[in-house]
C-alpha cells in the first residue's frame, strides 16, 4: 500500500533528548534570557518610552525645581543631585516591565510551553530575572551616557560601579515582579499593583531628596524601603567623582544610619542582594507550584 511504500528509506530520526541535571537547567536559563533580549531589542518603542520618564524627572522636574531648591543643594545643581536617583529609576521601570512579561506570557500561552519543558522551573525564573537585569542595565547605560549634561564627568570606575549596582537592583526588582506575576494573572491588575508600589518605593528611597534632616516617620519608612540600599550606593559612586565642598557632601550624602550606626556601603549592597535572593527564592517556589 501507499502507506508502506512512502516510508523513507532511512530509519526515522531518533533524537535522544538528554536527561536533566544542571546542564539542562543552565540551558533553560540561557534560552529564557536570550528570548528576553530578542524581545527587548524588537521592541524599540519600549526602549524609547522607558527612557522618557527618567528624562522628564531629570530635566523637567529637576530643571524646574532647580531655582527653589538652590538654597538646599549647597551650590550643587539639583539635576546633578537627582542624577543617581534617576539612574536607579530608569532601571526600576524597565525591570518592572520585564517582570510584567510573565503575565503576558501566561495570557498568550507561551508560559505553558516553558512549563512543560524538561527543565527545572527555577531555571526559567532565573532566566527571566537575569534577562530583566540585563535589559534594565542597558537602559541604565543609556541614562548614564547623559552624565556630562548634569555636570557629572565620565569615569570608568564610576560607570562600572553604577552598572554593577544597577544590575543588582534590576535583578531584585525583576525577581519581585516575577514573584507577584505568578499570582496575578491579569495585566491590568499587575500594572495597577506596580503603579501602586513603584512610586511610593521610589519616593521613599530618597532617590529625589537627601536623607539628612528627614522627619522621624519618613526616616523610618526610608530605612524600611529596600530601594534605599540601592539608591544610596549609586549616589556614593557618582558623587565620588563630583567636586563639592565638605559641607555639601555632608548635607547631600549623609549615608544611611541604623539606630545611630553608620551602615557601610558593603552592608547596604548585601541588603539589596539579600532581598534579591529572598524574592528569587519565593518566586521559584511559587513557580514550581503554578
Amino acid at each position: 500500500m501507499a502507506a508502506t511504500t512512502s516510508k523513507p528509506a532511512a530509519a526515522p530520526v531518533r533524537i535522544a533528548v538528554p536527561p536533566g541535571g544542571w546542564r539542562a537547567d543552565l540551558r533553560g536559563v540561557k534560552v529564557v534570557w536570550q528570548r528576553e533580549l530578542i524581545r527587548f531589542w524588537r521592541d524599540k518603542l519600549r526602549i524609547v518610552t522607558s527612557l522618557v520618564q527618567p528624562l522628564i524627572f531629570l530635566f523637567v522636574l529637576g530643571g524646574g525645581l532647580a531655582n527653589v531648591a538652590s538654597g538646599g543643594t549647597q551650590g550643587i545643581d539639583l539635576r546633578t543631585f537627582m542624577f543617581p536617583g534617576v539612574l536607579a529609576m530608569a532601571v526600576l521601570f524597565t525591570a518592572m516591565f520585564s517582570a510584567a512579561s510573565v503575565v503576558w506570557d501566561r495570557e498568550y500561552g507561551f508560559l505553558r510551553e516553558m512549563l512543560v519543558a524538561p527543565v527545572r522551573r527555577g531555571s526559567i525564573v532565573l532566566g527571566k530575572c537575569v534577562g530583566g537585569a540585563t535589559v534594565a542595565a542597558f537602559q541604565g547605560i543609556l541614562v548614564m551616557a547623559l552624565a556630562p549634561l548634569v555636570h557629572v564627568p565620565y569615569s570608568a570606575a564610576m560607570i562600572l560601579d553604577v552598572l554593577a549596582l544597577q544590575l543588582l537592583l534590576a535583578f531584585m526588582i525583576t525577581a519581585f515582579g516575577v514573584m507577584a506575576a505568578v499570582r496575578i494573572t491579569q495585566m491590568q491588575a499587575f500594572m495597577a499593583l506596580m503603579q501602586m508600589l513603584v512610586m511610593p518605593l521610589l519616593f521613599l528611597s530618597g532617590a529625589l531628596f537627601p536623607l539628612s534632616g528627614l522627619p522621624h516617620w519618613l526616616a523610618v519608612l526610608n530605612r524600611l524601603d529596600p530601594l534605599t540600599y540601592a539608591v544610596n550606593p549609586i549616589r556614593e559612586a557618582v558623587f565620588r567623582h563630583v567636586e563639592m565642598t565638605a559641607s555639601a557632601r555632608a548635607a547631600l550624602l549623609p549615608g544611611i544610619t541604623w539606630f545611630g550606626w553608620q551602615v557601610p556601603i558593603a552592608v547596604q549592597v548585601l541588603v539589596v542582594a539579600g532581598f534579591a535572593l529572598a524574592m528569587l527564592s519565593v518566586a521559584i517556589v511559587e513557580f514550581r507550584r503554578a
Binding site: I38, R39, D43, Y108, G109, F110
Partner: peptide, 8 residues
C-alpha cells in the same frame, strides 16, 4: 490554545 511567542 496557542502557546507560541508572537514576537518571535
Amino acid at each position: 490554545d496557542p502557546t507560541l511567542d508572537g514576537y518571535l
